[in-house]
Amino acid sequence: MRILALITVIITGIILIYGTVDMPDWGDPNSPASKHVSPGYIEEALEKTATPNIVTAVLADYRSYDTLGETAVIFTAGIACILILRRRRRQRK
């Protein structure tokens, strides 16, 4: 079983390393990730949101509904923890 797990992991790793050969170089300013929409965000964030920190501007202004959904995720996780740990205690009584 352990040998099977090791073989699976090594095959996955070889496939992923084969995929990294076509990736852009680390720290390349012309990589596709930093060419498409991110220059727009960097140039317009200060005048549109008046926030010097671009990460905060995107997190709380452009994507504030996303942050609201994230809060809903944390709330659901807390409720799930309470429900899971409480039902067992009641069954034991």
Binding site: P29, A33, S34, V37, S38, P39, Y41, I42, E43, L46, I54, V55, V58, L59, R63, D66, T67, E70
Partner: peptide, 18 residues
């Protein structure tokens, strides 16, 4: 004026914060 090449890309940081 703000040069886009002078600052690193902020969008992956936001997504990974989530």
């Amino acid at each position: 004026a703000i040069q886009a090449t002078a600052y690193i890309n902020p969008l992956p940081h936001v997504l990974m914060l989530t």
